[in-house]
Amino acid sequence: MPTNRDTLHDLFVTGLRNAHAVEKQALSIMTPQIARLDLYPDVADRLRRHVEETEGQIERLDELLASLDTSGSLLKDTALSMTGGMAAMSHSLAGDEILKNSFANFAFEHFEIASYKALLVLAEDGGFAPVMTPLRQTLDEEVSMARWIDEALPAVTRRYAALYAEGGSLHAKV
């Protein structure tokens, strides 16, 4: 276990930059989904709220990085935003887009949860106590979103199956 404060600082800053890029990726995944959720208004509403939370998370990360005399990585932000956009686009071609997006969003939220838990460990071990509160707030928001997706998945799946059985359009009008 690294105990050198400089090492922990470097790892922590890298983790914050990674989290910043992941949050940018999350926006590039969620935003296009919202426009295609006419048939699932409750999912669209929750995604809109989480987009707002994510924008706040990015602001908090910007503040944390600035307090450490650094900023997000433009390269990481751009690369992950592009891959997020491509993932959202690839799901939009599938008839079961809502299910694929639900599965991917569930997995993505858990990736973020693990990332923030690791950042909290680095912050604690590195003596960066002032950053614990905003990181915990973000972790709580990610846990809440993951829980919502988990609880909503049965209803989303049943709605998709009913629409499929009716032979109606499974895609939103774009």
Rank of each mutant, 00 (worst) to 15 (best):
T78G: 10
I113F: 04
A94M: 13
L80Y: 14
D140L: 03
K100Q: 07
A66M: 02
G72Q: 04
I113E: 10
L74R: 10
F128H: 12
D69S: 13
H110R: 14
G85T: 12
D77Y: 01
R136Y: 00
L135C: 08
R136P: 02
S73F: 06
L65N: 04
L93W: 13
L75Y: 08
L68P: 08
S73Y: 05
L68C: 02
G95L: 05
N105M: 04
A94K: 09
A87F: 02
T78Y: 03
M86T: 13
T83Y: 01
L65A: 07
L65W: 07
L122Y: 08
L139R: 10
S81R: 12
T70P: 03
L122S: 02
L119A: 07
F128I: 01
L65E: 04
L75E: 11
F106E: 03
S144D: 15
D140I: 00
A87R: 10
M132N: 11
V131S: 08
S81G: 11
P134A: 07
R136T: 15
G126N: 04
A123F: 11
A123M: 10
L135M: 14
I113S: 05
T70W: 03
N101I: 00
G72L: 09
L139K: 06
G95Q: 06
S92E: 07
K100G: 00
L68S: 03
M145S: 09
S81P: 03
L75A: 14
E124C: 01
E112P: 11
G85W: 07
A123E: 04
D77L: 02
Q137M: 06
V121D: 01
L139A: 10
Q137S: 14
F108E: 04
D96L: 01
S81M: 13
K76C: 06
G72S: 12
G85F: 08
L68G: 01
L120M: 13
G72M: 08
S102Q: 04
M132K: 14
P134Y: 11
E112S: 06
F111D: 01
S71H: 12
M86F: 14
S67M: 07
L139Y: 06
L122F: 11
N105P: 01
D77P: 09
E141A: 15
G127E: 03
R136E: 15
S81A: 15
A118C: 08
K76D: 15
L119Y: 09
D125A: 12
V121W: 01
L122C: 03
A88N: 02
L120T: 10
H110A: 01
E97C: 03
M132V: 15
S90E: 03
S144C: 06
S73M: 07
E112C: 08
L120N: 05
V143H: 09
D140H: 09
G127V: 07
A107V: 14
G85D: 05
M132R: 15
E124W: 05
A114F: 07
M89C: 07
H91V: 04
G127A: 04
G85M: 06
L80M: 14
T70Y: 02
S115K: 12
K117W: 00
F128K: 08
F128E: 05
D125W: 11
G127I: 08
